[in-house]
Design a protein around this nucleic acid. Structure first.
Lengths: 108, 108
DNA sequence: GCTATATGTACCTTGATCGTTACGTAACAA
DNA sequence: TTGTTACGTAACGATCAAGGTACATATAGC
């Protein structure tokens, strides 16, 4: 959890996760997306690996990374302790759509 | 968003948010909860303030902090781009409760 | 074996961050 | 006004994170 939020706090790493959400990508392809040099990407990938957010599979010289979204569910679970609070506030602002929001909330 | 995730990446600050989720708290009370000295707490509070996660109100000498959960909704929105991915995986593990999960997911 | 390709690691530098102690400030209380 | 309480800020040292360059490793192809 600590490691996951730490990993998510970096813009480059979030960009990498977004790219990975479309499917497996090699380290080189990820590096091409970012304004930093490849060794930096390698280190970011290590952080993501240690946070459990990616899996690696080797294919010849290539390392193919894929997203492992489970740790994000932990973040979501942590966040859910606050969800009621902000939804309450949003409801106060948009009272005209209260009925729809209440329906949705009741199923969580 | 950047500032919010940055703020959330620290354990002490998350502890402060948790305390604040029960209601407004003074800076001193927050400091008492943490293993660090008050000046450190003050700086953490500044980070939370700059991320928009807390509001301050002055009451005589005291500064009363209250949680402002709206920025957490942004994090939730970012996270929601991945929610389908991890729910898919969890469903694969717990196929027996698929019906309940699918109901919930369809309303998000 | 030799070279090219793909990637990670080591090492260095710079800038941010965390905590501490010391100090400044503002509001009450006597 | 003097002291006390409750904060914040400044300045400092230590640690950490992010980037780059240079190098090591491993696989594929010849």
């Amino acid at each position: 959890m600590e490691a996951v939020l730490q990993a998510l706090s970096d813009e480059s790493r979030r960009t990498m996760l977004e790219a990975l959400s479309a499917g497996p990508v090699t380290a080189g392809e990820l590096a091409a997306l970012l304004p930093i040099a490849r060794p930096g990407v390698s280190r970011h990938l290590r952080v993501l690996r240690e946070a459990g957010l990616v899996d690696v599979r080797q294919d010849a010289q290539r390392r193919i990374y894929s997203l492992r979204p489970e740790p994000l569910a932990e973040v979501d679970a942590w966040l859910s302790r606050y969800r009621a609070l902000w939804e309450q506030r949003l409801d106060a602002l948009n009272t005209e759509v209260t009925r729809g929001k209440r329906e949705r909330r009741s199923t969580r």
